[in-house]
């Protein structure tokens, strides 16, 4: 009876957004009379940072301080349409829609400023600190607040913009199956180490080393946070989570989440993450989406590590102690793959 150590590797290509496209998102941006901007979205922030990242994107495109942008995702009944927060599509799809809307709003803002300054809008630039000025002549300036107020109260313009981002639904050739499933791939590679107890069948992940290629990390802290939590969830999917922990009869299935096992704070693995940035040509400021991809490589890597440790190949998730023990029995005990 022993604990066997094993190492497993997995690499993934991860498609951003819905397979085949056809998943639009819209954004509406408008200036308020105080010169601050509201971005209206129906894209839900469930903790992944949708609001933070769209706020950054809007501020960058508008050319105003991030503090001057408010993202409102309050109501999907009244907001502009979005397909939703899933498929790691938020940053990519919604971000592009926000850029389009913010560009349109910025153009009106600059026209309003141009009228006040009696210059050509094409000669104006923003300084990102709340001012608009003539290129090369910072003294000929107006604040974004003054420009927004002039638009509102003197010129009768709405400083606003509409944006939509749509990758049109790809046709599928009925003969060949040819299609364009996705326009943007993120990537990840991961090495995990496990310890497998050949007496109890228990598997513990002892270390993870990963590299995630995310396009551009628009908010590196948020990306890091997602990768840390998501990889933990991948470990949980690999070894713990199932809606059917009991059997043989489905009548024994659990009726609530108290029987839904997940690793707790005492079951963590160390995890070293490298974030690689290769800006995506069609991403907002190069961003892809780290969402689900954080979890994906962990599952095959853990399965491979178990095979490495004891020679048992489990192809059915989660890899519970029972499945490991059955595999060990079928082959007459542990057969570590690693030599020496």
């Amino acid at each position: 009876m022993a604990r066997h150590r094993g190492r497993g590797f997995a690499a993934i290509n991860y498609p951003i957004g819905m397979n085949l496209g056809g998943d639009p998102s819209q954004a509406l941006v408008h200036a308020n009379p105080d010169g601050k901007f509201t971005v209206a979205l129906s894209s839900i922030d469930l903790g992944q940072g949708m609001k933070s990242v769209t706020r950054q994107i809007a501020a960058e495109t508008l050319g105003v301080p991030v503090e001057d942008v408010w993202v409102d995702t309050a109501d999907s009944d009244t907001g502009p349409h979005c397909m939703g927060s899933f498929a790691s599509r938020g940053t990519h799809r919604v971000g592009n829609a926000v850029i389009a809307a913010a560009r349109e709003a910025r153009a009106v803002l600059l026209e309003a400023a141009a009228e006040e300054l009696e210059v050509d809008a094409g000669d104006l630039v923003t300084d990102g600190r709340g001012n608009i000025h003539v290129r090369g002549a910072p003294a000929r300036a107006i604040t974004t607040m003054a420009a927004a107020q002039a638009a509102q109260f003197r010129q009768g313009r709405t400083v606003s913009g509409r944006g939509i981002f749509l990758i049109p639904l790809s046709p599928v050739d009925p003969e060949t199956g040819e299609m364009t499933p996705v326009s943007c791939f993120a990537h990840a590679a991961m090495m995990v180490e496990v310890e497998v107890d050949d007496e109890t069948g228990e598997v513990g992940v002892t270390d993870m080393q990963s590299a995630y290629e995310v396009g551009r990390a628009l908010n590196p802290r948020l990306v890091g946070q997602q990768l840390t939590g998501g990889a933990w969830m991948g470990m949980s999917h690999a070894l713990w989570e199932t809606t059917e922990p009991f059997y043989p009869d489905r009548a024994h299935r659990p009726v609530d989440f108290s029987a839904y096992l997940m690793p707790g704070p005492g079951d963590l693995s160390s995890h070293h993450i490298s974030i690689l940035e290769r800006p995506a040509p069609d991403g907002p400021y190069g961003a892809k989406g780290p969402g689900e991809m954080c979890a994906n490589p962990v599952l095959p890597a853990v399965a491979n590590a178990i095979w490495d440790a004891v020679g048992v190949r489990v192809d059915d998730l989660p890899i519970t102690p029972e499945k490991v023990l059955r595999g060990l029995r079928a082959q007459g005990g542990a057969r570590p793959r690693r030599r020496g």
Binding site: G47, Q225, T228, G229, G230, A231, W232, M233, M262, G264, P265, G266, L268, H271
Partner: peptide, 20 residues
């Protein structure tokens, strides 16, 4: 000791490490 203190608290999102 931190792990033990929060051992009865579940978190779905963070992977616990940032909380610890």
């Amino acid at each position: 000791e931190v792990v033990a203190a929060i051992g009865g608290n579940l978190c779905r999102c963070t992977g616990y490490e940032p909380i610890i």
